[in-house]
Simulated assay, not measured.
Amino acid sequence: MNAVLQAIRTRRVVRALTAEPIDRERLDAVLDSARFAPHAGNRRLHRYVAVVDPALLRALRMVSPGMLQHPAAAVVVCVDWAEVRSYGFPPSNPGPYIDVGTAAATMLLAAHSLGLGAGPVTSFSRAAVATLLDLPPDVRPELIVCLGRPAPDQPPPVRRRGGPRWETLVRWNRGDAAPPPGRM
């Protein structure tokens, strides 16, 4: 099987991490991967805060009800709204949020490829995180990627029984249930 498709199919949100620290080389590789994610117009509207200090990680957990993990590191993905405005994007433009997702997905795959456990967190107090990280007023945290070594025992995955197959979620062209014959 194609290595990229294999990585996509085997990557999981890791909710149990060990206390073992992450070496700097792997953390740097995860951070570097974000620059290869698609960005609207190839503009760099995001800022990243890498958090490795144990006390600061504990403080982040206290203001992040969605952070079930005890990460050895976290990357806070932020949008620089002053930069967004400087390009003339209206506040309603979804591009910066889409780019948060592409950066996070790329970092999650990079972490997986390096043998790290990772999981995204969106349930947190943006104001509290901005204060803890001493962010400039126009830089707003949007997502946290937790990183660490996967613990041997993981909680069971959250799965729907009999979830839909991809084919049931796709419409072809103008609503056809199947692709046109001979067109693939």
Rank of each mutant, 00 (worst) to 15 (best):
N2V: 10
A3V: 15
V4H: 04
L5D: 01
Q6G: 11
V13S: 09
V14Q: 08
V14I: 14
A16D: 01
L17N: 03
L17E: 02
T18L: 00
P21T: 02
I22K: 09
I22R: 09
E25L: 03
L27Y: 13
D28Y: 13
V30R: 12
V30T: 06
D32Y: 14
S33F: 06
R35V: 03
A37T: 04
P38S: 14
H39T: 12
H39P: 00
N42Y: 10
R47K: 05
A50Q: 10
A55T: 08
L56T: 14
L56Q: 10
R58E: 15
R58G: 15
R61I: 01
V63R: 02
V63F: 00
P65E: 00
Q69A: 10
H70G: 09
A72L: 00
V76D: 08
C78G: 09
P90T: 06
S92M: 07
S92W: 15
N93Y: 13
P94W: 08
P94I: 07
P94C: 09
I98L: 09
G101F: 04
G101L: 05
A104T: 14
A105E: 11
M107L: 05
L109F: 13
A110Q: 09
H112Y: 09
S113F: 15
G115F: 07
A118G: 00
A118P: 08
A118F: 03
T122W: 15
T122K: 06
F124M: 03
F124Q: 00
S125D: 08
V129C: 11
T131E: 13
L132I: 05
L133V: 09
P136V: 12
P137C: 13
V139P: 04
R140N: 10
R140A: 13
R140L: 09
E142Q: 14
L143Q: 06
I144M: 09
I144Y: 08
I144L: 07
V145G: 06
C146K: 01
A151I: 07
A151H: 10
P152I: 15
Q154A: 00
P157S: 15
R160M: 11
G163K: 13
P164R: 10
R165W: 06
E167P: 08
E167V: 14
E167I: 11
T168V: 12
L169Y: 10
R171I: 08
R171H: 02
N173A: 11
R174M: 13
G175N: 02
A177D: 10
P179R: 00
P179C: 01
P180M: 01
R183Q: 13
